[in-house]
Amino acid sequence: MSQQSVTSGPSAAPLGDPEAPETRSMELWVSYTLRIGVSIAAIVILAGVILYVIQGSSGAGHLQSMDDLKPGRDNTIDVSWTSIRDGLKDFQAIAIIQVGLLILLLTPVTRVALTLLLFLRDRDRIFAVITAVVLTILLLGFFGIV
């Protein structure tokens, strides 16, 4: 169907039409989800940064010199759920920043999960399947399984 013909009244609006209520509703949901994810991540990271500055160079795991970022550095960092949990118990700035970064990284994942629910709600089978596959790959990649 050519776009030029989409002037035939609201009842004839196809699902892909932005005026269609389900498309508009999906756009608003996605937009809110992204905004909320990004805001929470920013607040947590900022809190971590403030704590980092307060703790200064004595804080656990804080970078001591720019040389630690250069190629051939010998300070590979151990990052795991356990290291983050223990860090949070000790109120370490690094762990708080890492939690904020994880929230940021999880925002697109959440967005795709939400899109899947919305396609299911709209009974849009093809796109529900497409989105389900994307979400699966995303989760496998994210948790380091693939």
Binding site: L63, T76, V79, S80, A93, L102
Partner: peptide
């Protein structure tokens, strides 16, 4: 992230 390539001092 889990490999430790995302350094908080740069990433934040």
């Amino acid at each position: 992230f889990w490999r430790g390539d995302i350094v908080p001092e740069i990433a934040a």
